[in-house]
Simulated assay, not measured.
Amino acid sequence: MAAAPSPIRPEPFLAIGPSTIKEELRKERNRLRNQHWGNTTGLRQAKHLLGGYNLTRYGETLNLSKGKLRIITGFLTGHCRLRGHLHKLGIWSNDLCRFCDVNEETPVHLLSECEAVERRREGTWAITGQVTKQYNR
């Protein structure tokens, strides 16, 4: 007996709209971007302070003035006028925090650890208690 011929018909229909495809591509792009950020060597301090990649934060950063961008870049790289960095360069005699005189003065210390500037930090950011939680991961 001969095999029955297979019917000729259109390919199976898959109901996926263009917005679903765009959303999946966006998710994949974000996953790859975060994977690249995580796998990039170095950037220890920036990774600690920023966490992951954030497109909104990226856009806001591009609109900052040159002076503010310089300050943020200094904090993210650790190359700023804090005693920890100045001491490493041989410009300052010690690396102790000018406010608490206990720990090394670094951006991470000032933003999340220094008890001497805690009230000022919370008042400036108006997020009582959230600063330390955000940066001490």
Rank of each mutant, 00 (worst) to 15 (best):
S6Q: 05
P10F: 07
P12G: 12
I16C: 02
G17P: 01
G17W: 13
G17D: 02
K22R: 05
E23F: 05
E23N: 12
K27Q: 07
R29T: 10
N30W: 14
N30I: 15
R31N: 06
R33Y: 04
L43K: 01
Q45D: 11
A46W: 00
H48D: 01
L50S: 01
Y53C: 02
N54M: 14
L55N: 14
L55R: 04
L64A: 12
K66R: 07
I72W: 10
I72G: 03
T73P: 01
F75I: 01
F75N: 00
F75P: 00
T77H: 11
G78W: 02
H79A: 08
R83M: 05
G84C: 00
K88G: 06
K88T: 07
K88H: 10
K88S: 08
G90C: 04
G90L: 04
I91A: 12
F99R: 04
F99T: 01
C100K: 07
E104V: 11
H109K: 11
H109G: 02
L110A: 02
E115A: 08
A116V: 12
V117P: 03
R119A: 12
R121N: 12
R121T: 11
R121M: 08
T124P: 02
A126H: 06
G129H: 06
Q130V: 08
V131I: 15
R137K: 15
